[in-house]
């Protein structure tokens, strides 16, 4: 019997094994206690690594960084564009200089072409290069002038439920699992129109606009989940966050959902 390699077992855990290979591996595992044991060990090590890395957390300074980025787009971004455009401009200049020299020669086809371009009524139709439209000024950061709202609770009997309802279908719900016992919901941008209701182990968010809701579920809770219009979007499972709805952005560890996707 050929045992499964460590790489194959890891691929199974990370859901990277193609379906056919996965079926073969599962069939082998069903009859091989050694490999099944190794898979269980690797699963434990992977979960422990993930939990330990989760301890190293710092709040990303998103708003400040986004404002810095927007300032750069308004100023330095234009310079960067110009630097990138330089080689193209140099090629165009060489072309124009070459054409001018050729056009100076009597009888040259280039001279005829240039003369044709200069004829009244034809220049605009036959100009080989349309001037590029002037670049629009970089838009400012689209922040809605509303202070973020945040509510936090502790689990009740080890359970936390975050329920979102009556929101804009364009509302983005970002979920994350963090060490600690506190659950928190922060509404930013147009989502700050939401009303919050709290009860034991429960936060209800109603009427959020098309901004972003950041839902922080506590790793210390026995059970924690976020639901939108009655459907569970993400839940704590073991030591990790599991997505139960299609995510539109983010990552497995920090999925972003659209409220209107159910």
């Amino acid at each position: 019997m050929t045992h499964l390699g460590e790489g194959t077992l890891q691929e199974m855990l990370d859901d990277e094994l193609p379906p056919g290979a996965r079926a073969q591996a599962e069939a082998h595992l069903a009859s091989c206690p050694a490999c099944a044991g190794e898979l269980a060990e690797l699963r434990g090590l992977t979960a422990r690594t993930s939990a330990l890395l989760g301890l190293v957390e710092a709040a990303p300074p998103v708003l400040a960084a986004q404002a810095r980025f927007a300032r750069h787009r308004r100023t330095g971004g234009a310079l960067a564009e110009a630097r990138r455009a330089l080689p193209r401009a140099a090629v165009l200049l060489l072309f124009v200089a070459g054409a001018a020299a050729a056009a100076a020669v009597p009888g040259s086809p280039v001279r005829e072409w240039v003369g044709g371009l200069a004829a009244p009524g034809r220049a605009a139709e036959e100009a080989p290069v349309q001037p590029a439209p002037a670049p629009a000024p970089a838009a400012a950061v689209e922040t809605v002038e509303m202070a973020p709202k945040a509510v936090s609770i502790l689990p009740s009997d080890g359970r936390v439920r975050i329920a979102v309802s009556g929101s804009s279908p364009e509302l983005r719900v970002r979920a994350r699992l963090v060490p600690g016992a506190k659950a928190e919901v922060t509404a930013t941008g147009a989502a700050a129109t939401a009303r919050f209701l709290t009860g034991p182990g429960r936060i209800e968010v109603r009427g959020a606009g098309p901004g972003e809701l950041v839902v922080t579920l506590p790793a210390d809770a026995d059970a924690a989940f976020v639901e939108v219009n009655g459907r569970v979007y993400a839940a704590k499972e073991g030591g990790v966050l599991r997505s139960l709805a299609p995510r539109v952005a983010g990552s497995a560890a920090e999925p972003v959902f659209r409220a209107g996707s159910n």
Binding site: E57, P60, V62, A65, Q66, R73, G250, A253
Partner: peptide, 17 residues
């Protein structure tokens, strides 16, 4: 860029931190 920033920055920052 704004949507991209909102989506990617937190993850990129955490990775770099």
């Amino acid at each position: 860029y704004d949507a991209l920033f909102r989506d990617v920055y937190p993850s990129l920052f955490r990775y770099l931190h």
